[in-house]
Computed example of a mutant assay.
Amino acid sequence: MKICLFGGSFNPIHKGHIKIAKEAINFLNLDKLIFIPCQKNPFKKNNYYVSGEQRIEMINLVLENKMEISDFEIKRQGFSYTIDTIKYFKNKYPNDELFFIIGSDNLTKLSKWKNIDQIVRMVKFVVFKRSNKINKTNIKKYNCLLINNQIYNESSTEFLNGNFEVLSEKILHYIGKEKIYFENILKNILDEKRYLHSLHARNFAIELAKVNNYDVNKAAFAALVHDIAKNIANNNKEKARNIIKKYEPQRSQIEDYKLHQEIGYIILKHIFNVEEEIAHAVRVHTSLDINLNILDKIVYLADKLCQGRKYPGIQKTREIALKNIDQGLKLVINQTILFNKEKGIIFTKEQEEIYEKWTK
């Protein structure tokens, strides 16, 4: 049999990985290709990894014909060295022809790989192009095969930078269900001040959830991601409105101050398939609504009262909110009304009705 090994962090697996796997299967006429997620990459010691089990589950969601998965490196724990993996599969398939996929960006690093000379005697490297700049010296030195593939722009880094289209819908929904990667996404797409605000909001939401006997994990997550679309809405209103037209066309005429909460709802609900209760809390965390549930109130107050917010009497307001969430809500809304009126902001009729209901 002709077997190709495809190692990597797959953190998470993206569309580019699957395209490369299909290219290799066709190029080499493989009997099977085996994805081998690593426990830790020795060249990426400081990277954030979700659990091996979660990465395996995500890979399983998108496997296609002739593709398999091995948990060998995950079970080994520690850093993953290619030589150990190659020896394992050479022993498992002693009479089969083994190939090993690497990206062209790894060609210059091959001399640093542990036992590289031994590796090339056991497997043949198959190189996929990451760019048009190829180290031909090492291609020849290590007897590599080069796949003449298109340059794929999908990457895990692109995903963490907010380009969610690089992942399949199944993977995005899994991430939404497991609530993974979001803190890293926020760190990449928000400015530092807004990112820290999100962390502080999460912390205060946890306090509010505990005293109100509400699900702490739900509250923490909803508060963490409440501003996930802040920079999109602030930096490009045309892009923001186009997103709304695509997913929620009936709401495309909403006011500018609602843009970031609406796009936040869209990202969570339509892209990551997060439960409606959480998405709704993000959707109303600035404007509120005529109907509010406990999570809506928690996220609103976490945004307004968390560490980093500073105005006269805020500590007293925090204490009141932690004792009685509805009294805290009423107090914060009255403070917000006063603050906005001093800035000359005129409320819409809808906003006036909302404020009137919750300040009675």
Rank of each mutant, 00 (worst) to 15 (best):
I244V: 05
S252L: 06
R130F: 10
I36H: 06
F204S: 05
I74K: 09
V299Q: 07
C38P: 02
I102K: 01
V50E: 14
K245E: 14
R55D: 08
T108V: 10
I320Y: 08
K170E: 15
K269S: 11
P94C: 10
T359M: 05
K341F: 01
H226T: 09
L338S: 13
P249Y: 12
V284K: 11
V62Y: 06
R130I: 02
N143G: 02
L292E: 09
Q327D: 15
G328R: 13
N153G: 11
L268P: 02
N334W: 08
F164S: 04
H14R: 14
E53T: 09
N153M: 12
A279R: 09
E73K: 05
E64W: 06
I314K: 12
D105I: 00
S155W: 08
N41A: 04
G16T: 02
I254L: 14
Q253W: 02
N115E: 15
I267G: 07
N213I: 00
E207Y: 09
K304C: 07
K32D: 06
S252H: 07
N47C: 01
F125H: 01
K90L: 00
T82C: 05
N60S: 09
N106I: 04
L268V: 07
L63W: 08
N106K: 11
I69R: 10
I83N: 11
E248R: 14
L288Q: 12
N95L: 13
Y93R: 09
N231Y: 13
L61V: 03
N161Y: 04
I254R: 09
F6N: 01
L110W: 02
T137W: 12
I354P: 00
N340Q: 13
Q335D: 14
Q253E: 15
I34W: 02
I102D: 06
Q253N: 15
Q250P: 01
K210F: 08
I290F: 12
K258F: 01
Y311R: 15
I228D: 08
T85Y: 05
F35P: 02
V126G: 05
G78N: 13
D105W: 01
K124M: 03
L259P: 03
K193V: 06
K230A: 07
K45R: 13
A281L: 10
S80I: 02
K323E: 08
A229M: 08
C38G: 06
E352S: 12
I180G: 03
K310Q: 11
S80T: 14
E353D: 12
D289I: 01
N143W: 07
N106T: 03
K246Q: 13
N213R: 14
K357T: 05
E158Y: 13
A233S: 14
F10M: 08
K179T: 00
K269D: 10
A233Y: 10
Y49V: 00
L61D: 11
